[in-house]
Design a protein around this nucleic acid. Sequence first.
DNA 1: TATTGTTATACTCTATAACTATA
DNA 2: TATAGTTATAGAGTATAACAATA
Lengths: 149, 149
Amino acid sequence: MADPLADRLGYLLKHAQQSFAEAGAHALAPLGITGRQLAVLAVLGDAEPLSQLAAAGRLGVDRTTMVQLVDELEDKGLVERRRSPEDRRKNIVELTPLGQDTLRRGNEIHQASEERFLADLTPVETELFIRILRRLNGIDDEPAEPVSP
Amino acid sequence: MADPLADRLGYLLKHAQQSFAEAGAHALAPLGITGRQLAVLAVLGDAEPLSQLAAAGRLGVDRTTMVQLVDELEDKGLVERRRSPEDRRKNIVELTPLGQDTLRRGNEIHQASEERFLADLTPVETELFIRILRRLNGIDDEPAEPVSP
DNA sequence: TATTGTTATACTCTATAACTATA
DNA sequence: TATAGTTATAGAGTATAACAATA
């Protein structure tokens, strides 16, 4: 292999991430959102409503970036800000019905895109690959399911 | 797992890449170069001398970006441009002795950084992980070594 | 005083367009 | 005319600093 970069972990990770992101962006284009915006919707639509700062923490961005992310989604009519009654410094950000629908459809598209990206792998390879990535990200795997008696 | 991003391939790839890049940047800091600059040195120092455009192709950047990358390395005294005698439009970029030494030491640091990053994996997992990444990047694995007779 | 959201600003990375010189 | 390198410029993406409202 003549390419001196081909074995570099950083190169492999970066380009895998880039080509997956490009494929995802292309797949999501009909919905009018980016992969990043889908991730924001996923965080905001996950469980109980979040403040901007709380959502920023989940996404790993700072609060000024979060302002812009929420701006974009609000401009598209996908989320709404409202002042928290308990702490009027906070904006609670909630998905609109359109946002919820977009999240649902985006998730389906993302899932299909992920499957296409991993299509060349065997099921065993796919599972191991995801598990390793989780481990490298410091996400503990759930304990092995208890063997049914 | 409450985190709605934790299972997303894009999130896992992006954050794995980022934390590895950060670790690498930290490890390379004593050499005074970034991971990106080490990659450029690796391409330029690999085999026969390359023009800027040829190197840009290997790195997957465009020629204007390559100008800046070479500028940075030239400012540090790690590479030198010279006009190609065969085609005076081309700059042949070669590593200086300092550049060669920096590449060698950078490779050692990079290798150690990679090993630390993957330290939690078993050797089998490590090999499979790299192989899968190569496959996802469209890099053909060399054919299985012929079984010794 | 500290926290949340916001704005203005700047910095990095990268690409596009236009220019120079060479072919 | 086309190609290689360069420059100026612009566009994402992100962060820092300062400010207003609220605690």
